[in-house]
Design a binder for these strands. Structure first.
Lengths: 204, 204
DNA sequence: TGACTTATGGCACACTGTGACAGGACGGTT
DNA sequence: AACCGTCCTGTCACAGTGTGCCATAAGTCA
């Protein structure tokens, strides 16, 4: 990895950290791109070369999470029930956060704290989730051997899985730890599985 | 109802219709507020007094739908299982569209067609749905006699209901009729109920 | 008619996001 | 080390969004 790429990655993280701190300090809306750029000593123009917009900063984790879910899903045995496979993919995301560097874990928690106080950002986040949902639906449809345009159950399976994830991520306390999130997520998964009929995701 | 209010409502609908037509004709992103305002012969400044932003236009239906869902929910017997009550609320929304004026029905279909070709707008729409989800969670928590901050099942019930709704609204064909949407929605509801264990939403 | 409330338009303004171009830093080659 | 092509960055210009402010016009009620 050359100096150029390392420098880029460093700038990327510097922007992210400066932005998260500014957001938490003075609010998301009232923080401008100019301020963020100023804090990292880059031009506003350069900011937009790293992140397409301010929202993209808060969606940083989704890109990573989606990637992990798709990777995990590809590795799960083909005969595993779709919802079960999705729940495993979900656990992988959290396991990755737990196994990451302390810096990354801190970023993750800051992001969560940010979302807590900004319903508007939660909305954006859910919107990003809709994109993930479409991608997952493609994969699950392939697993089930159906056309995603025709099979409602495929979409229901994925939507239920994403619902389970969102419920698990929610955390009423501000000072939520990763362990606590992991516990709530496990609870949510268990709850969802208890609510659904056995074999419901294998119908045709 | 005075002249002033009637005039306002007329302007509101005129903006909506002009915008929907422009969006479908030349695309959502490439339609500016100035163009919409020009088509209705108002100033851009006035546009923003009717709709907070361009997105708000595409969310017009949500405001109405949410209202109906909350109203219906309030009317359902208190001892009805929460998910069942939510499914009734959902059906009310569609029944309302069916029972509305031909103009409103046309607007509804145009909006659906617009969403079909704009994943970005679907995202915004889902984000708006997250807001509805929070409101519904309050009501369902009250019905269940629990604290919405503590009870994960409440959130799961609402999230599953909204998932069912979104799946039902999706329509692979461009020239979808209201009858077809209603049929798909009924299918989706039936499917969801078949997937869930009887009494799953009555646990504590 | 006159006094009020409210909607509208016009203006200035801050912010977002993008295209185009010039200069500088990096990477590989000789 | 010197060279050159590639990639990154900053500057400038610009279109578009969204808001506060104030004057004015239209609707409302006495």
């Amino acid at each position: 990895m050359g100096l150029r790429e390392r420098k880029k990655e460093k700038t990327r993280l510097a922007i992210l950290d400066a932005a998260l701190d500014l957001f938490l300090e003075q609010g998301y809306e009232s923080t401008t791109v100019e301020q963020i750029a100023g804090a990292v000593e880059i031009s506003p123009r350069t900011f937009f070369r790293y992140f397409t917009n301010k929202d993209h900063l808060a969606m940083w984790f989704h890109d990573h999470g989606e990637e992990i879910m798709l990777e995990t899903l590809a590795e799960r045995p083909a005969d595993e029930p779709p919802f079960t496979a999705l729940m495993h993919a979900l656990r992988s995301v959290l396991a990755d956060v737990e196994g990451s560097t302390p810096d990354d874990a801190l970023r993750f928690l800051k992001l969560r704290r940010l979302l807590d106080g900004n319903p508007h950002l939660v909305g954006k986040s859910v919107a990003r989730g809709a994109q993930t949902e479409r991608r997952l639906a493609e994969v699950i449809a392939a697993r089930r051997g159906v056309d995603p345009d025709e099979d409602q159950l495929t979409h229901l399976i994925v939507a239920f899985a994403m619902s389970t994830m969102r419920v698990g991520f929610e955390c009423p306390r501000r000072d939520c730890t990763i362990e606590e999130i992991q516990r709530r997520m496990a609870e949510s998964i268990e709850l969802a599985e208890r609510c659904l009929r056995p074999g419901w995701d294998l119908q045709h």
